[in-house]
Design a protein around this nucleic acid. Structure first.
Lengths: 109, 109
DNA sequence: AAATAATATCGTAATATTGCAATATAGATA
DNA sequence: TATCTATATTGCAATATTACGATATTATTT
């Protein structure tokens, strides 16, 4: 198949899975980390930084942008990308929540 | 293609991407959340809980187990699954780290 | 206005993922 | 030992993802 049966899960579960999928690629992690490091940069900086062709970088940036993880501002003929704190913050909260619940219970295995 | 050029990225980046991929499916999020909720359960509980066929659940469990997110103990003819705290803890720390770095800088867009 | 620079989009080939029926395996129980 | 119960594996069809060459778009520079 290759298609996920999203209709049976909660909106939160689908959203989280979708966010994680947007980050679940080493190039997109590398892009995220590079933007965090330099605070903001244009697409071409990333093309020079990573060993991938320009259309491939553009595609990865689009996915990160669609997920709300980064945002881009037009600056002349370039586009300045930076992190949108909200989504990373959301992920951090979700994993903190998981960890707290797991710590409370434990036992078993 | 469909193949990722992992050889050009750091081990940490590849590992994180791989972990996130293991969680990047609503069924696997639902499985994780169910196990957290009930602390530990056998595969069949999940089959009854989720609207997916037994082989599909088994496949998702395998991926979560390979990623180290859950672990399974044989109990008679059933297998008792529970969370391995280490990996969720690792993810929580990584996202906390990202958030701290982002908060420190900010500006731009 | 032409050339250049930065980015996006399209089309496509290679590969990966998802879901499940059919079947295998292994322990429990009658 | 035959049957039942729980889980895993195999094989396959449908779909998604990844990567990139070719090309389009848009703004800047000459």
């Amino acid at each position: 198949m290759g298609i996920s049966k999203t209709e049976h899960f909660t909106d939160k579960q689908n959203e989280l899975a979708s966010l994680l999928k947007a980050l679940a690629h080493p190039a997109r992690i590398a892009i995220l980390e590079h933007i965090i490091k330099v605070n903001a940069c244009i697409c071409n900086d990333i093309v020079n930084e990573l060993p991938l062709a320009q259309p491939t970088i553009s595609q990865h940036l689009k996915e990160l942008k669609n997920a709300g993880i980064i945002k881009g501002n037009i600056e002349g003929n370039a586009i300045c990308y930076c992190i949108d704190e909200k989504v990373i913050g959301k992920l951090q909260k979700i994993f903190s929540g998981y960890e707290m619940k797991i710590e409370k219970k434990r036992s078993c295995c």
